[in-house]
Amino acid sequence: MDLVARNITHAYGGMRVLDDVSLTARGGEIVAVLGPSGCGKSTLLRIMGGLEKPVSGDVFTSGETAPGTLNPLTYVFQDFALVPWLSVTDNVMLPLQHHPMSDTDRRARVSSALARVNLSDFSAAYPKQLSGGMKQRASIARALAVEPAVFLMDEPLSALDAQTRDLLMEDLTRLWTETQFSAIYVTHNIAEAVRLGHSVAVLSRRPGRIREIVKIDMPLAERREGAPELIRARDAIWDLIRAEAAVADREISHAL
């Protein structure tokens, strides 16, 4: 299934945050959306999953979803959004409960999702007993259990320390290699964008506009820190960001 955003414009109380943004997540591909903080990239993601109404523009899906898909557009949140009074199992179970299926099927989905993120041993733990990385893996398991057509990932690694972030990037790469899901991966971190994105949509400062979409052809599983292709992509993205910053500086000097 593809997820298509067309000409999205959004404003908060007169302040424009997104300006005519169009973006497509194609089946089996991760699109990284990269931009400075406050450029509206998280807002774009909330709009694309139906958590916010844009001032103008439309979001469509096209194509069929897999038969096991319970929730086609599924978020992974920056702050994990785990329910503190539910165990890890119950957190993963929560979105399955209202779907008509046998309890055995539900439990099978939960345990396979927890196994895929290596959390089987912590199924009975409460969120506060988990480390940051484990919390995010639990929230990824919750998303995996509903077999989404498109993952909507809102800075999923930003609340984690650098080492945990590296480990989770490897986990995400492995998960994608197992089942080629599609995803929109919002981040402000260039390293994450070039490690996980099949393409990187670079957003401008507020109001967010798409500056350029940088394609990275290297297969995810082969990507390593310091691979020449990734360095090239990173440098290209850096140049875009630098040019943007230079424009900003000129604007400030005009204002003075």
Binding site: L51, N71, L73, T74, D79, A81, P95, H98
Partner: peptide, 11 residues
């Protein structure tokens, strides 16, 4: 955030 999470899963 928890309520929006649940809504995003169609709960």
């Amino acid at each position: 955030g928890l309520i929006r999470m649940a809504q995003s899963f169609g709960v």
